[in-house]
Amino acid sequence: MSKADAMAAKVLPLMPEPTPSEPLVEVRDLRIQLRSRDGARLLNVVNGVSFPLHRGRTLGIVGESGCGKSTTALALMGLLPGSARVAGGQVQFAGENLLAKSEKEMRELRGAKISMIFQDPMVALDPLFTIGDQLAEPLERHLKLSGAALRERQVSLLQAVSIPSPETRLGQYPHQMSGGMLQRVVGAIAIACNPALLIADEPTTALDPTAQAQFLDLLARLRDTYQLALIVVTHDFGVTARLCDDVLVMYAGSVVERGPVREIFDHPRHPYTQALLAAIPQAQEDRQGRLRTIEGQPPDLARLPQGCAFAPRCPNVRPKCHELPPPLREMGDGHVASCWRAGEV
């Protein structure tokens, strides 16, 4: 156990895991519709997403903009925008369906049992209040802390996210800190009340490379120390390689592939996953060749084809692909993919 881990363990006592075999989160066939801009149509932005997630494990939700990955995350938090509505499915969290809960009940869970980290730390905190104020809010609300106990917890939380001289930092304002430091503060706020589930939506996209690597290290450490169930929403396979146990790839609102991270990297079954992986410039090698691309344009949710949504851009398309959307099929080892040709080797 490193010094930082020991420090973190001191701050938040480990919550006993109730039944280790049961997943903490079980999303089943989640469907979300969004009213189109002109209000005329309902778009299926999330189209039957399912996954289990255990404590201490990390799921990466990967996809490009508009694929429904962030909407899925917001639905778990009960923070969907007004133009969106849940059209079906379940989100089981510690044995309860979150989608059946009232806004008031969700408010008791948010920040306490389920927390979220957003993309840009520079705008995630209210510029007019000190770090200390904003860290105190969830502690006062959910844990009813005050006075010396509150102060002590604030300091140890900043220590848990490796922020030096925490007493000074508590009195500072967001504009006095760098992006990497602010994202740590956001992380401290998110874990303040010892949540079981942490959702991080593109947590390092706005950070510089060194700050990004450090923050991913921190997330891994917090997950291990507190046995957090962690969901990382990202467009970057590098983030999943660093952090995740399982990966879920989304395209046009649907899950195209899901499986253990090594399976996904070594044996991607869906052509979209394959193409995304091939499109990453491999820094590890000195390749001065051309990148593999995915031809065509990102899908338009208002004009999805009748069959497989990826068919118009797919290099191995078959006539069948244009007729019927492929179902998710089991590939073995918890690996599923929705491609008519996924069984072929």
Binding site: L79, G111, A112, S115, F118, V123, A124, L125, R141
Partner: peptide, 23 residues
């Protein structure tokens, strides 16, 4: 964004409106 983050902390609507947004 910080309003959304406040909501994700479980803050009540009145606190968000009168303390943070209004200020």
């Amino acid at each position: 964004d910080y309003i959304r983050f406040l909501r994700s902390k479980g803050m009540s609507k009145s606190l968000i409106v009168w303390k943070h947004a209004l200020r």
